[in-house]
């Protein structure tokens, strides 16, 4: 069953059509990636799903419910969570405060505390730097924090927008390990990546986005071996 279904999604910035009516779905328990070059509309897709930018037409259905008329802030308690492009951790707040904000919908303080302990076990660096202001963390640590913060709401669907951006190859590997590991705990993942090779290597299925339209879709393993994908996105 599709946990997330996007139908004929169209988004415009003024007269520019950033998304020209795209269709895709993410089934329960899958890792699905959306790959494509800069400016293809990947982040626009992610932001419009979470209600950060208005959509012009089309529908977004989550868990059987049309959500594009629901105010964005209510989607978190439905089980959707997003790690935005560029991490966007709250720079002036501490690691701890960032994590607490990730559990904004949760009012049980004991539960929040336990969840923070759990996140700090998953990301030991965050545990060490709990009291540190997020703006002073390294890029990798900020990515971990952004992911930990998104996990604080116990999502059913975790969406990650370019988690590998600006990270060293070693850290990229770590980030993808964490995603794989988190997926094993039963969370469905929608991943947006420019690093197509990495994304495809952990995904079940994938869609290729080109200037606002989906041009290809299929099993990740098939796309990895597809000649045109190899040429355009895998640098082979």
């Amino acid at each position: 069953m599709a946990l997330l279904e996007v139908k004929n999604l169209e988004v415009c910035y003024g007269v520019i059509r950033a998304l020209k009516g795209i269709n895709f779905e993410v089934n329960q328990g899958e890792i699905v990636s959306l790959i494509g070059a800069n400016g293809a509309g990947k982040t626009t897709t992610m932001q419009s799903i979470m209600g950060l930018i208005p959509i012009k037409s089309g529908t977004v259905t989550y868990d059987g419910q049309v959500i594009n008329k629901i105010p964005g802030h209510k989607l978190v308690s439905l089980g959707m969570s997003q790690v935005p492009e560029g991490r966007r951790v709250f720079q002036e707040l501490t690691v701890y405060e960032n994590l607490v904000l990730g559990a904004y919908a949760q009012k049980d303080k004991k539960r929040i505390k336990d969840d923070i302990d759990e996140i700090c076990t998953r990301f030991p660096r965050l545990g060490e730097r709990k009291k540190q202001v997020a703006g002073t963390l390294s890029g990798g640590e900020q990515q971990m924090l952004a992911m930990g913060r998104a996990m604080m709401s116990h999502p059913k669907l975790l969406m990650l927008d370019e988690p590998s951006m600006g990270l060293s190859p070693l850290l990229v590997d770590q980030v993808f390990e964490i995603i794989k590991d988190y997926h094993k705990s039963g969370v469905t993942i929608l991943l947006v990546e420019q690093n197509a090779k990495k994304a495809l290597s952990i995904s079940d299925r994938a869609y290729v986005l080109e200037t606002g339209s989906i041009t290809m879709e299929g099993k990740a393993t098939d796309l990895l071996n597809d000649e045109s994908v190899k040429k355009a996105y895998l640098g082979e």
């Binding site: 978190v76 966007r88 951790v89 709250f90 707040l93 405060e97």
Partner: peptide
């Protein structure tokens, strides 16, 4: 407080605050 922290979050990054489930 929860509301106070939400205020700081909105002041720093409105979009990210909304992603936390904060009603901006």
């Amino acid at each position: 407080t929860r509301t106070g922290r939400a205020m700081l979050a909105v002041s720093e990054d409105r979009g990210a605050a909304q992603l936390m489930g904060i009603n901006v």
